[in-house]
Write a protein that binds this DNA or RNA. Structure first.
Ligand code: ATP
Length: 645
DNA sequence: TTTTCGATTTTCCCT
DNA sequence: AAATCGAAAA
């Protein structure tokens, strides 16, 4: 029984009637398919229906369809739309990182990975590792040198260039002996000391070696190791390529080559690629729209151009922005909505006033009966988001900012997570140092001694603690060490309670902040939040590991509540709201000027970001900017606003 | 020698 | 707001 959907049998009330192209995409369930869809043309709607169609009418099981999104917020949106239609949770819908992480955990051993690896998930920890390497290599560990090396390592990794394939000594001819060289890094031209440039490969190799030693993976490694898994292990590859009878890849214009290669390895001639080259905003992560363009004439291609999202005025502005792009495929959006929609551009003397305006305007909307879930405030940089969050909270407006911004970077949250990570991965020097120095009388020196023991005896850092007699410790300190060992190796009580009570973190924190009660209160609240997140998890090693793995898709797991959304433009991609604020639309912020400069290439990509931002609005779009920072420093209005006026 | 304290610096975007 | 580095304290 093969059912073809058409306009008559699509009787579901809460479903829009799909147009001809959308229906064709929904009904094309054999072979490869490329869907090119500009903003708001219903690509999410279409692929959700395609998924539902495959399940309900063509005998696919949910665990046979792999659907990848680019951000966790988009994954959450996709999942909730599928749940609405089918009443079950789709098991393989998520970001590539979260889906492949699951596959890697199961298959770690077959590529020589210790399955108890933990994630190296922030730049600060990466820099710590790089800095140590730099010092050993005789490189001046200045902050900008370390950032430079980090950026190069990132560039290698998200382009799939492996350390093992690089020679240690660079012999590129145009690397001069003295002076400066100019080079492009993430589309930015930077001037750099050739002596430093020469050491990039070596540092990269050492960085990789260090991560293996500490049993850490960074985000790029999740992809690199998945690719290696499928490349080197035919059995595993066959298993997954047969398991996933159909694959759908959303936001394909933003994939990097490693991601494209992985899809190539497991796809089984039922690959649906969805993309919009005007929404490519992740070149800095090595994205290349080549998967979108690799589709040739013979393969099926469907273009969606009718916008169902925004009012006429908004669409006309969006089209003006598309016209202003230098590199684009000629296209325009057709507006299908009858309503005009509203665009307002407001100027304020400083950021304080701008925030006040946004708060008051939101209050007014809420008074008029607008739901909080229909309001979003978008911004280019998170620091603006943090300030907006504070302002909204002060005014008792329920709002939500991604936890990765203001939550996972807090010291108490990092401390708790380090403790959990150390329980899973006792080779992580990063986690070990963080925990050890919390104890009174223990500092970096002692940590280094234990690390040395671990190295000598080739044992884990926790095992090195047991050899504490090799370094003279006072009785008090010995007792502390034993306490730490016992809480780390205890897998029967709640690990967070172990840390807070048995290890004594709560009293450490309370004494550290005894003079700042409000700060302490704040920290205690964050600790409560972590406890809540952990609820429902057992204390066994596997459970803690699963909890930690779950954190990489925290934005997908976030409960839907009625509250105002605060989001960067990047993570707002694919989503929509009735009322959208675009805050601090200033030159140097959007477009963002890195170190006071803006490369013309970058400008186009910032413009695409602006395009994404303004195309999120259904009914009203409020763009605001400010003239000074409050201390007299002048800010210009974004030149992008000129385009739409 | 190692820890602790206080002044200084660092913050683009995401997984 | 937190990490870092040098100087003071233990
Ligand atoms: N055929 C249709 N008729 C009426 N409304 C539609 C139709 N298709 C989609 N829509 C509506 O248009 C809006 C935009 O759709 P959707 O979010 O699927 O677009 P999108 O292509 O994913 O956008 P973007 O590329 O910006 O992420 C949604 O509110 C959706 O319900």
């Amino acid at each position: 029984m093969r059912k073809v959907l058409n306009e008559d049998n699509m009787s579901n009330k809460n479903l829009p009637v799909l147009n001809k192209e959308q229906l064709e995409a929904v009904n094309t369930i054999k072979g490869n398919l490329l869907i090119i869809a500009s903003a708001g043309t219903g690509k999410t709607t279409t692929i959700v229906e395609r998924y539902v169609n495959m399940i309900q009418n063509h005998g696919y099981r949910p665990d046979e369809i792999l659907m990848t999104t680019f951000t966790n917020k988009a994954a959450k949106d996709m999942v909730s739309k599928i749940v609405k239609r089918t009443k079950f949770e789709p098991p393989y819908v998520g970001t590539m990182h979260s889906l492949f992480m699951r596959i890697l955990r199961v298959n770690a051993q077959s590529i020589g990975l210790n399955p108890y690896f933990t994630l190296l998930d922030n730049d600060l920890d990466k820099k710590k590792i790089i800095k140590l390497i730099a010092k050993n290599e005789g490189i001046d560990p200045r902050a900008d040198n370390i950032s430079y090396l980090l950026r190069w390592i990132g560039k290698f990794k998200n382009r799939g260039i492996l350390a093992e394939n690089l020679s240690e000594n660079l012999t590129i001819e145009d690397i001069k002996e003295k002076g400066f060289i100019e080079e492009a890094l993430d589309d930015e031209i930077i001037r750099i000391d050739p002596q430093l440039r020469k050491k990039v490969n070596k540092v990269y190799k050492k960085y990789e070696a260090e991560l293996r030693k500490q049993n850490l993976l960074d985000f790029d490694d999740i992809l690199i190791f998945t690719k290696r898994l499928f490349e080197t292990n035919k059995e595993v590859r066959d298993y997954y390529s047969q398991k996933f009878k159909a694959i759908m890849v959303d936001e394909a214009q933003d994939l990097n080559v490693v991601q494209i290669d992985i899809i190539g390895l497991i796809q089984n001639d039922n690959l649906c690629v969805i993309g919009d080259e005007c929404q490519n905003i992740y070149e800095w992560r090595g994205s290349s729209p080549e998967l979108v363009f690799s589709f040739n004439e013979k393969q099926k291609k469907i273009v969606l151009q009718d916008n169902y999202r925004s009012g006429k005025k908004i669409i006309s502005s969006v089209n003006k922005v598309i016209n202003a792009m230098k590199f684009k495929i000629d296209k325009q959006l057709n507006c299908t909505k009858e309503s005009d929609g509203k665009i307002k551009i407001e100027e304020f003397s400083d950021f304080e006033e701008e925030k006040e305006y946004i708060v008051n305007k939101i209050k007014k909307l809420l008074k008029e009966g607008v739901s909080k879930a229909d309001i979003a405030v978008l911004f280019r940089i998170n620091s603006i988001g943090k300030e907006l969050e504070r302002e909204l909270k002060k005014n008792k407006i329920p709002c939500h900012l991604s936890k990765s911004v203001n939550f996972f970077e807090r010291e108490e949250v990092k401390d708790i997570l380090s403790f959990l990570r150390l329980k899973i991965n006792p080779y992580s020097v990063i986690a070990f140092e963080r925990i050890l120095v919390l104890m009174n009388g223990f500092g970096k020196g002692t940590a280094k001694k234990f690390e040395e023991i671990a190295k000598q005896k080739t044992c884990s850092l926790i095992d090195s603690l047991k050899l504490h007699s090799e370094i003279k410790l006072s009785q008090d300190k010995t007792r502390e060490v034993h306490k730490l060992i016992s809480v780390i190796e205890n897998f029967s009580s709640n690990p967070i309670t172990l840390f807070l009570k048995d290890f004594g973190y709560l009293s450490i924190l309370k004494s550290k902040y005894r003079e700042e009660p409000s700060k302490l209160q704040d920290k205690l609240e964050n600790i409560e939040t972590i406890k809540e997140l952990f609820e429902g998890h057992e204390s066994k090693k596997e459970d803690i590991k699963n909890f930690l793995d779950g954190l990489i898709e925290i934005d997908k797991k976030e409960k839907t509540k009625d509250r105002v959304t605060l989001s960067t433009i990047h993570s707002a991609k694919g989503l929509e709201w009735e009322n959208v604020f675009l805050a601090s639309c200033n030159e140097k912020i959007l477009p963002f000027y890195f170190r006071g400069e803006l490369d013309p290439m970058k400008r186009d990509s910032e413009l695409r970001l602006f395009y994404v931002a303004i195309s999120r609005a259904k009914k009203s779009l409020m763009i605001s900017h400010h003239e000074t920072n409050g201390w007299g420093k002048e800010y210009e209005r974004s030149s992008f606003i000129d385009l739409i006026e």
